[in-house]
């Protein structure tokens, strides 16, 4: 029964792995709910902010902010929002793939890339792939705070203001539903004006205090809120992806155990049959 014992050990070890993955699945499910709430709560602010900035982009302002001026793109910045931990399926790698595809397009036309990485996974990936990394932010935890992000975002905004980069992109996962998360890359800077028929005439705001001071503050707040929202959304994606990955792992472990159990039963049966045959054969020889 040597083979039988080996199989038993293997089954026990898979069972304990299954316990761990199923526990992780449940933890991820409960964390996902909280992460989703956090994402929903921040949405109205981001939407309103977007609307206001959209209006500004459509207006004919006395002072055109640097963030609204298109210039020739020689260097581009990417903020890549990844997770801090692994075991969440293809979430990060799919994101990196689409980010790299978008960078390739730019690099082909001779644009240099600078990176700001959020999350430990992006740090590890781009360290091995190579890339010009200007800032990294990691260990954000379950409840990312705006304060932790500001440093990284500011370094990119400063680079834009000083002319070291001419465009800024944000790559992160979009939470479609629990089963689906899709990687997206959107352009943050320069701001793209949305077409709005009702605002097509020439008009401008009254600014209090002056336009420059106000827009500077508002634009920074706008970019920060977009990045924060992306990080929160990526958090929800992470938990959802982990939940699905762990559910699959649990199911696979179950199948593996079933298969091994079958092999074990067969081996046991064969051994018994063989022993019986030996006994019968022995008895016949004596008789």
């Amino acid at each position: 029964m040597a083979a039988g014992k080996e199989i038993r050990t293997k089954i026990t070890s898979i069972q304990s792995t299954q316990k761990i993955t199923s526990a992780m699945e449940m933890v991820a499910a409960s964390k996902m709910r909280r992460a989703q709430d956090r994402m929903e709560v921040g949405k109205p602010y981001a939407q309103r902010m977007r609307a206001v900035v959209g209006h500004i982009a459509n207006s004919t302002p006395e002072y055109r902010h640097a963030y609204m001026q298109e210039r020739e793109v020689k260097r581009a910045g990417y903020i890549i929002v990844s997770t801090d931990r692994g075991l969440c399926g293809g979430l990060n790698i799919n994101l990196f793939k689409s980010a790299i595809a978008s960078m390739r397009d730019l690099q082909d036309s001779g644009v240099e890339i600078e990176l700001c990485l959020v999350g430990a996974k992006a740090g590890g990936f781009f360290a091995s792939v190579g890339g010009n990394v200007t800032a990294t932010v990691k260990d954000l935890g379950e409840e990312p705070s705006l304060g932790d992000l500001i440093g990284g975002v500011k370094s990119m905004l400063d680079a834009y203001t000083e002319g070291r980069i001419d465009a800024l992109y944000l790559a992160g996962n979009e939470f479609v539903n629990t089963m689906t998360q899709s990687p997206t890359v959107e352009q943050l800077l320069p701001l793209k004006a949305e077409q709005n028929e009702s605002l097509s005439h020439h008009w401008d705001y009254l600014y209090e205090p002056d336009a420059r001071e106000l827009l500077d503050a508002l634009m920074v707040r706008y970019i920060e809120s977009l990045v924060y929202q992306a990080v929160v959304e990526n958090g929800a994606c992470e938990q959802a992806a982990r939940m699905i990955a762990m559910k699959n792992a649990t199911d696979n472990a179950g199948e593996l155990i079933e298969d091994l159990q079958l092999v074990y039963n067969k081996a046991r049966q064969a051994a018994i049959t063989q022993e019986l045959a030996e006994i019968v054969g022995g008895a016949a020889a004596i008789g």
């Binding site: 206001v52 209006h55 500004i56 207006s59 008009w203 401008d204 705001y205 009254l206 600014y207 209090e208 205090p209 106000l214 503050a217 508002l218």
Partner: peptide, 19 residues
């Protein structure tokens, strides 16, 4: 309460942006 004092907004107010 705006940065330059209290302000009231009614129907028909001009486009305004303030801190």
């Amino acid at each position: 309460t705006g940065i330059e004092g209290e302000l009231g907004v009614c129907h028909g107010h001009a486009a305004l942006l303030t801190r």
